[in-house]
């Protein structure tokens, strides 16, 4: 189902756009339902569409020639992803893949049409600039973490970031629940699965977290904050 104009205004990039522009965006888009673990697009595909996730969750992953992959970011509903084709003057290729973490739906908007629309609607152009600036800031933060922080700090920071974005506090059980596997955390932090398992087991022994299959429950969030901010 196509999202309403009201729903589209939940997307930061579209907040100030006119109704007429949002309507024309809808006319140049299609709705794509993607099953868990399938892809919206693959690294190296022509970036013909930019996407708005309307339900579910997705991850943006980049692989090297050996097939090792790193997760660049997690996408939640009403966030834009795959926007490179809309801001590049040349034929652009997606630099990473977008994989559904659960059954998801996205609105695929023609990149070429969006680029044309941005030229006449400065609100859309500023919205995209804000999005790109947020990406740069996030990547700078991740780079600092990689360059300066111990793996323990990086993993704690990643869990805090994920909890802030998507954590759920249960009414019945203690703690903040995250629906992510150890593999997801490894790919987000550039650590090996072995390191993640060792760290999470250690934190589990200290009752900072509980972890299960595809789930991590943060029992003592402030302990993680302390780990994330404590240098060696």
């Amino acid at each position: 189902m196509y999202p309403s104009l009201t729903d589209l205004r939940r997307v930061n990039v579209f907040q100030q756009a006119s109704d007429a522009d949002l309507e024309s965006l809808r006319q140049h888009s299609l709705v794509r339902a993607i099953e868990e673990k399938s892809f919206f697009f693959l690294q190296g595909d022509e970036a013909a569409y930019l996407y708005v996730l309307t339900s579910g969750r997705a991850k943006i992953v980049q692989s090297n020639v050996n097939g090792q992959q790193v997760t660049l970011r997690i996408i939640y509903p009403w966030q834009v992803f795959g926007a490179l084709g809309a801001v590049s003057n040349q034929v652009a290729l997606y630099p990473a893949s977008a994989q559904a973490l659960e059954n998801s739906v996205g609105l695929a908007i023609e990149s070429a049409f969006f680029r044309k629309l941005m030229a006449s609607d400065s609100h859309l152009a500023f919205g995209m600039m804000n999005l790109m600036t947020a990406y740069i800031q996030e990547i700078q933060e991740r780079y600092r973490e990689l360059a300066l922080e111990r793996v323990e700090q990086r993993v704690a920071s990643a869990l805090i970031r994920l909890a802030g974005q998507a954590g759920v506090k249960s009414e019945t059980e203690a703690g903040i629940e995250l629906v992510f596997s150890r593999q997801d955390v490894a790919e987000l932090t550039g650590a090996t699965l072995y390191t993640i398992s060792r760290l999470l087991s250690d934190w589990e022994r200290k009752s900072i977290i509980q972890s299960g299959r595809e789930r991590i429950r943060i029992l003592r969030p402030h302990e993680l904050v302390t780990i994330a901010s404590t240098s060696a």
Partner: peptide
């Protein structure tokens, strides 16, 4: 108390 800048402030 650094809560105002903490991503987990909505839980505490």
């Amino acid at each position: 108390m650094f809560c105002p800048k903490c991503p987990l402030a909505r839980f505490c």
